[in-house]
Design a protein around this nucleic acid. Structure first.
Length: 805
DNA sequence: AGCACGCCGACT
DNA sequence: GTCGGCGTGCTC
């Protein structure tokens, strides 16, 4: 073999255990010096063609067989850096998933490919068949053949050797192009042209006038059309007459082009902020990786610290990465960043279109922007030379992805911080117990902000015992105290935010004659009543049916609704406070793009007096005129089947309380509950995170939960209940036989919702202390799972799960 | 994941 | 005798 032959090691786009390793390919000589690690390539794999990521190139191959060649190179530059290649490999191991899934997660969706199959004629094809299938086209797509009932015939022709199947993959990547105009004539020439135009040719006169104005500068056709009311036709005719040329120019979509921000100068830091800043700053200068917990009460000015740290990194020409829970909900954060750093900021979040996301990503990749801000997946932002990574609201569960690869952005942040040797800042008013405990042990350094920058007290939190309301025959969702408070607040022309953790109108409906409860046919849950569109909906699989008029079992007409959702509370508000304007914000009212902003604008402009919503309203809202916050039912999050239920309830109440009294007006908070004595509520009332932390840690220690032990959740699902359970027991036995010291096996147990979409779910929890000790047995199980998969038995492995549903 | 290869039941 | 069912194993 020629000794100048180059080889590529490629991870192929086939998410399965057996091929979760690099495959060797010959790099055709014309690309030998061009193909580099991180590029996407098309490679033959078996009989088909698939996408692959080059992870390495070399001068030799250890494969003892004839190698195939790369069929196409899809990129002119790597889409993944060597950092990402390394990270992807490690993540796959740690999370028990496939490298290809990790790589796919790191790049924008537009860089994924579509697969198609086509039939093409071979020279041997008969004249009749050529006419029948290929007279008007060079090829027939598989899908079209399938729809036209031609598939069987074409497959026969394939075996007869008359046609072949070709595998194609199509890049979804689309670079947006725009038309631009370049004037060709100078001022005198234009004057000449103008004098010879017919008086009726008004559009052309306009065009010439604009060209004179431009003084030789280029202008985009879009601007020309918009500002001077000229059509493309006029422009084209100008081109024909030789006044100008039209050319295409690559354009990056800018989703925030219309955003008007005032330039905001850095604020003077308060002593506590300055102290925290001073502690972190040297690490940026000296390339030191350290993790900081910035624990600051709501309103203590964490954001200003972030902004100045980012500035410090930029001053050293380093880049910065800021993660926020869900950016669509925190326009304030984007405004502040754009206000301070302008176009140096790229924003990445789920509400952007695929094209917009791709372009924001490219700005970072090409160094046109150096600051990335975004939700979870932005932790993979293509930034080099990172100077600082900040995770705001680090306790948020949205940082954990709940489908494969089930990574936690906080852990990825630490990995990248170590890679770049830069500080990582975890900010929160209510840190996760894991983070707070690590700060206790000295693994992280804890910095505290105890004072609010507006010097106001934290709002007064009252806990209302709803059992008393029941005793006094008050069957409304509003306690008398909360009702009075709302009345008074509205009278003062201030605003109210109410949170209820369940959408829809009623939780379930039951026939009062025979007791029948309307349930989802696919899942083991009751259907939720939605009055708005007069339906019953399953919130798990999406099943929808019309609101029934009578009971299907006994034909009875006495159907009663139980439980409360946002729709019902909205109705009660209209009944109790008829003069108030209500806006509702939940999954049902925010589904359309931009509807978030619309609702929030209504609140900001005081077109709404009461904002009612699910927990999505707890995050990041900053409306100075909201002085009253009500949590309608704090219990819904308290008794979830999750050992973090108390922690999450405490965080939610604290966060929601923080929405009250952001401005100069004092705030008050009402928490309605049937468990007024619960410690999570009591500590939230007292605004005492530290006491809650100490108390909760004792509970976790006693019950052997995180952060004292680590957890892996193994979930088995199958359409047959018995098979699912049997497999779950097999997993238990495998874990038992491995007999790793300092581990504990819980289950199998039925998942909180036993059946979703006709699949039965069982889970085994594996608690452990030593990560390396458990790796082999879990690898074994992963391989077994591959075999079980053939029988449609699915096994999910979730490292440090946040949800147990 | 796909796809081919290969070994057993009901049909021209 | 063959067509086609889907169990098994492989893909550089």
């Amino acid at each position: 073999m020629a000794n100048n032959q180059r080889y590529a090691q490629v991870i192929v786009d086939v998410p399965t255990m057996q091929v979760n390793h690099p495959f060797d390919y010959i790099i055709p000589s014309q690309w030998a010096n061009f193909v580099t690690p991180g590029m996407r390539v098309q490679v033959p794999f078996g009989v088909r063609e698939v996408l692959g990521f080059v992870v390495e190139v070399s001068d030799e191959s250890n494969i003892d067989r004839e190698l195939k060649s790369i069929s196409a190179v899809l990129d002119d530059e790597p889409v993944l850096t060597s950092e990402m290649l390394q990270l992807g490999k490690e993540l796959a191991t740690q999370l028990f998933t496939f490298q290809i899934l990790c790589f796919q997660t790191m790049i924008p969706n537009l860089l994924k490919v579509d697969y198609t199959k086509v039939f093409v004629p071979l020279p041997t094809i008969s004249w009749e068949h050529q006419q029948q299938f290929f007279s008007s086209q060079k090829e027939v797509s598989w899908d079209a053949a399938n729809q036209n009932q031609q598939l069987a015939t074409l497959m026969q022709l394939k075996s007869a050797g008359e046609v072949a199947v070709e595998y194609r993959l199509k890049d979804k990547k689309k670079i947006k192009k725009a038309y631009w105009i370049q004037p060709l004539l100078d001022y005198e020439e234009l004057q000449e042209v103008e004098s010879q135009l017919r008086p009726q040719a008004t559009k052309q006169q306009d065009l010439v006038a604009v060209l004179m104005d431009l003084d030789g500068e280029n202008i985009s056709a879009k601007q020309l059309k918009a500002s001077f009311n000229l059509s493309m036709q006029t422009i084209r005719s100008g081109e024909r007459k030789g006044w100008l040329t039209v050319f295409e120019k690559e354009e990056k979509r800018d989703p925030y082009a219309d955003l008007v921000t005032e330039t905001v100068e850095p604020k003077t830091l308060f002593p506590e902020q300055q102290q925290a800043f001073n502690r972190i700053l040297p690490d940026i200068h000296t390339h030191r990786h350290e993790v900081f917990l910035l624990q600051g009460v709501t309103g203590s000015g964490k954001t200003e610290v972030y902004l100045q740290l980012i500035q410090a990194a930029r001053d050293l020409d380093k880049t910065a990465l800021l993660l926020v829970p869900e950016i669509g909900l925190t326009p304030q954060m984007v405004n502040q960043l754009k206000g301070r750093f302008g176009n140096d900021v790229a924003v990445l979040h789920s509400q952007l279109t695929a094209g917009e996301r791709f372009d924001e990503w490219r700005k970072l990749k090409h160094g046109e922007a150096h600051i990335a801000v975004g939700a979870r997946s932005s932790i993979f932002a293509p930034l080099d030379n990172l100077g600082i990574i900040i995770i705001d609201e680090e306790h948020e569960t949205t940082y954990k992805q709940n489908n494969a690869p089930r990574y936690h952005a906080r852990e990825v942040a630490k990995w990248r911080g170590n890679y770049h040797q830069c500080p990582v800042v975890l900010g929160s008013a209510t840190p996760s117990l894991e983070t707070r405990a690590r700060a206790q042990n000295g693994v992280y350094e804890r910095l505290t902000l105890t004072k609010r920058t507006n010097h106001h007290e934290l709002p007064d939190v009252q806990i209302v015992d709803m059992r008393e309301e029941f005793k006094h025959k008050n069957y409304y969702q509003f306690s008398r105290k909360l009702r009075d408070a709302i009345t008074e607040t509205l009278a003062r022309h201030e605003q109210v935010a109410l949170m209820l953790n369940r959408r829809g109108y009623a939780n379930y409906i039951q026939c009062m004659d025979c007791g029948h409860v309307f349930q989802c046919p696919n899942c083991d849950v009751s259907l939720t009543r939605h009055n708005e569109d007069k339906t019953l909906k399953c919130h798990y699989c999406g099943h929808t049916e019309a609101l029934p008029q009578f009971c299907p079992e006994c034909r009875g007409h006495h159907l009663q609704s139980f439980g409360t959702g946002t729709e019902k509370v909205e109705q009660e508000i209209m009944e109790l406070f008829p003069e108030a304007n209500v806006v509702r914000m939940d999954n049902d009212t925010t589904r359309r793009k931009g509807s978030h902003q619309k609702i929030l604008n209504k609140v900001a402009n005081h077109e709404a007096d009461i904002l009612l919503g699910t927990q999505m309203i707890a995050k990041g809202l900053d409306f100075p005129n909201i002085t009253l916050v009500g949590i309608i039912n704090a219990d819904t999050s308290l008794y979830l089947p999750n050992f973090r239920a108390s922690e999450q309830t405490f965080q939610l109440i604290t966060q929601m309380s923080g929405r009250a009294g952001r401005g100069d007006l004092p705030g008050q908070v009402f928490v309605q509950t049937f468990n007024p004595e619960h410690y999570a509520l009591q500590f939230a009332k007292a605004h005492d995170y530290e006491k809650f932390y100490a108390y909760e840690m004792r509970y976790r220690k006693l019950n052997h939960y995180s952060p004292y032990v680590f957890t892996i959740r193994l979930t088995v699902s199958h359409f047959d209940e018995k098979t699912g359970l049997r497999t779950a027991f097999k997993i238990r036995r495998l874990l038992q036989e491995a007999d790793v010291p300092q581990t504990r096996i819980l289950g199998p147990s039925q998942s909180a919702i036993a059946r979703i979409n006709n699949q039965y779910y069982f889970q085994v929890l594996y608690h452990y202390r030593n990560r390396h000790a458990i790796q082999p047995i879990l690898e074994t199980i992963k391989n077994k799972a591959q075999e079980w998969d053939r029988d449609h038995i699915h096994v999910m492995m979730d490292v440090e799960p946040m949800s147990f549903m």
